[in-house]
């Protein structure tokens, strides 16, 4: 997972492409995370590979390319860092997370409504009336489509 909004002292270190530098750091971090997860797996030999051989090789390669990116960012000019819009991120991802936890117990209608309304908050020109009407329409449509027409095992209402 990339860390949020990295502040790289671009000019100070002579980094000419802060975006690549940060990207390289992210790759290194992922490689480290992978290595930590597979530290206990046996590596075996190239001819008789253990479960750890292939992922370890990949993790090292990933780290290597992270370093290449970082090294390149000192030499070649490139893009700066982009800003992260945390509000949209939290609203959209949060809406999905709510749906995930609600669907089995609260059913399609309630969790679907929560998903659509929370995610709609991320829009910059929010019109409540329109959103509510549209959400209701989409929910009716999905209830007819998924549990009824396609016969998928989805609870429609909360289980009481």
């Amino acid at each position: 997972m990339p860390p949020p909004q990295m502040k790289v002292p671009a000019a100070g270190l002579g980094i000419r492409s802060p975006r690549n530098f940060a990207g390289g750091l992210v790759l290194l971090a992922i490689a480290a995370l992978a290595l930590w997860q597979i530290q206990d797996l046996s590596v075996g030999t190239a001819m008789r590979m253990g479960p750890g051989y292939y992922p370890r090789l990949l993790a090292f390669l990933l780290g290597f390319f992270g370093l290449v990116l970082m090294a390149g960012s000192v030499v070649v000019h490139g893009d700066g860092l982009e800003r992260w819009r945390v509000k949209n991120l939290v609203l959209v991802l949060g809406a999905i997370v709510i749906f995930a936890f609600a669907i089995r117990t609260l059913g399609l209608v309630l969790s679907g409504a929560a998903l659509m309304l929370v995610s709609a908050l991320a829009s910059h020109d929010l019109r409540w009336r329109e959103v509510l009407l549209f959400t209701a329409g989409m929910l009716v449509f999905s209830v007819i489509l998924f549990p009824i027409a396609l016969n998928l095992p989805l609870p429609i209402w909360p289980r009481l």
């Binding site: 809406a95 749906f99 679907g112 659509m116 020109d125 019109r127 959103v131 989409m138 999905s142």
Partner: peptide, 16 residues
């Protein structure tokens, strides 16, 4: 502004 919540809904139902 209406399309994306609907897309999210279908995605989540589908994935679930």
């Amino acid at each position: 502004r209406l399309l994306y919540p609907a897309i999210l809904l279908f995605c989540c139902i589908g994935v679930f």
